[in-house]
């Protein structure tokens, strides 16, 4: 026996025919019922079509991400002159004026976080499909961070709402939301739904597949290779 094969063996609930409820944590046998007896949530071993749903929602958010930055976020009207402002224009204006912290907050919320989130979700999907070697420990952490950070992008929409309601001085100055705001809000919501649809348990399943394959490979080598040289 190899000492590094003495690792503890982890049993999965799904292998025993049990499904842990995502809402209340109760373990129920899958064969008998498809609904949790305690909270009436749907039961499943893994979220059905998790990767496909996640990818579809991510695709939608990528498609909307581009117009959300090209279309005006707000339209500022000063003395009858209307000026469209995109997210990037607003951000560069702050940067040039020397208001670096606020420019950085806008950059993180509206550009960096959505891109990182979409990238992370694509990476997670690739790992769950077995396209890249899974390292679930790190990927689960990435998943946590993705879920945690995603909502902060909504800050742009709130700022638009606050500006629109505060800056209403009749003929002098007024601010109206543009189509970019709606597109951006949809991007954020789609990425949130995408993260919710992803099932991190798939990552550990792939790792187990890999380990099993490696184990069988080692087994085959020791038994079927010619012993005499």
């Amino acid at each position: 026996m190899n000492p590094d094969h003495q690792k503890p063996i982890f049993k999965k609930a799904a292998d025993r025919g049990l499904a842990g409820c995502r809402t209340c944590g109760l373990m129920s046998p899958m064969a008998k019922q498809s609904k949790c007896p305690r909270c009436h949530s749907r039961l499943y071993y893994r979220k059905p079509d998790s990767v496909e749903n996640t990818l579809a929602l991510v695709a939608g958010s990528i498609a909307l991400f581009i117009p959300s930055h090209l279309l005006p976020m707000i339209t500022v009207t000063e003395f009858g002159v209307a000026v469209d402002k995109t997210i990037i224009a607003g951000m560069t204006a702050f940067w040039l004026e020397g208001a670096y912290p606020i420019a950085l907050v806008i950059f993180c919320a509206s550009i960096l976080i959505p891109i990182l989130k979409v990238g992370a979700l694509l990476w997670l999907c690739a790992a769950a499909k077995g396209l890249i070697h899974p390292s679930p420990g790190m990927l689960t952490k990435i998943y946590h961070i993705t879920e945690l950070l995603g909502r902060w992008s909504m800050i742009d929409i709130f700022v638009v709402g606050i500006l629109v309601s505060l800056v209403q001085f009749g003929n002098y100055t007024s601010i109206v939301p543009g189509p970019g705001a709606l597109a951006f809000g949809t991007v954020v919501m789609l990425t949130m739904f995408a993260a919710m649809n992803f099932d991190p348990r798939l990552l550990w399943d792939r790792l187990d597949d890999c380990n099993r394959r490696a184990h069988i490979g080692k087994f085959a080598k020791t038994f079927f290779s010619p012993k005499s040289k």
Binding site: F10, K11, A13, R22, L26, T140
Partner: peptide, 14 residues
């Protein structure tokens, strides 16, 4: 009557 096990939500280990 509840079972005496719990599964991890992230890796399904029992």
């Amino acid at each position: 009557k509840q079972g005496d096990t719990a599964a991890c939500l992230f890796c399904d280990t029992i």
